[in-house]
Design a protein around this nucleic acid. Structure first.
Lengths: 164, 164
DNA sequence: GGTGAAAGGAGTCATCC
DNA sequence: GGATGACTCCTTTCACC
């Protein structure tokens, strides 16, 4: 079921480009930007949501404002065996503070991105949640000192304006 | 100017909690959820935007749908010296495919998160953009095979309902 | 798949509490 | 700060193309 026949035309790409950095744009503004009727644009947006091209609309919140000042990446090595790997992945994903779980190439099995209030709460979380997951062999933690850039915007190919 | 007197009460936290996973919620629905008048809620949302507690509203787009199937993390080691470091950070941040730039603790200087169409385009980007940045000593690339979880939602302390 | 119009609903602002 | 009400604009639907 991966990679269904999701075919996106230039208009879809324009919509995605506008919405990925301004998700609360009104449908009528969206329609003005791309020179179409609001109803037609609305239908396209709904289809993009249905097809899961648009997965969710998020408000990006400043972590420090809600006392989540520590960001860390942790490499997690696990015992061999693919069934256990996807178990571990799921258990990691269930931890709310874990924002990302990636299965990676190379010796280490997973890379996770995690946010907590401070280093003490990271330590507590590692003891209480991470270490209790079976089949984890070792972890290697990288603490972020400063985040220079953090955005989820994708590079969407700019639609080629047709010559009228 | 970092950490201004941003004081968030329970109502603000409720708003953030609702909007971080549903940024296109209408203001009136938001008002219903937290039992307040729409105008009062709107004012709070605007203040949260002004104070940069809400940084942006994003549509989370499925990367595969727009031909961005490769995700990689790259550790970048640079020459010593703090001034050169922030220069490098800025140049890394200017690359559109680079979604995140973190200054990290330890031997390596930076960790970046980068998305491209495929491994060939990652190679091209490393040759054309990364390698041309001065003072970069070495890079270590980690390719993601599969992403199990990827969300930017923060753990916001659940407001304690006051006893009425 | 897009348009245009019409009804219902939401955003916005001034005013009062 | 929050509520109310009025005005305006937007969303949503549907018949038509």
């Amino acid at each position: 079921m991966i990679d269904m026949d999701v075919v996106l035309d230039n208009i879809d790409l324009q919509i995605l480009n506008l919405m990925q950095s301004n998700a609360r744009i009104s449908n009528s503004d969206l329609a003005k930007e791309i020179n179409m009727a609001p109803s037609a644009v609305l239908e396209r947006v709904k289809k993009l949501e249905q097809k899961k091209v648009i997965k969710q609309y998020n408000a990006a919140i400043d972590p420090a404002s809600v006392q989540q000042k520590l960001l860390a990446f942790i490499f997690i090595k696990s015992k061999e065996g693919f069934t256990c790997c996807s178990d571990i992945a799921q258990q990691l994903a269930n931890i709310p503070e874990v924002q990302e779980v990636h299965h990676i190439a190379g010796e280490d099995c997973f890379l996770i991105k995690i946010r907590t209030a401070d280093s003490a709460s990271l330590m507590a979380l590692m003891r209480n949640s991470l270490q209790k997951i079976p089949n984890i062999l070792s972890t290697k933690t990288t603490i972020v000192l400063e985040t220079v850039k953090e955005q989820q915007q994708l590079v969407i190919p700019k639609p080629v304006k047709a010559i009228v």
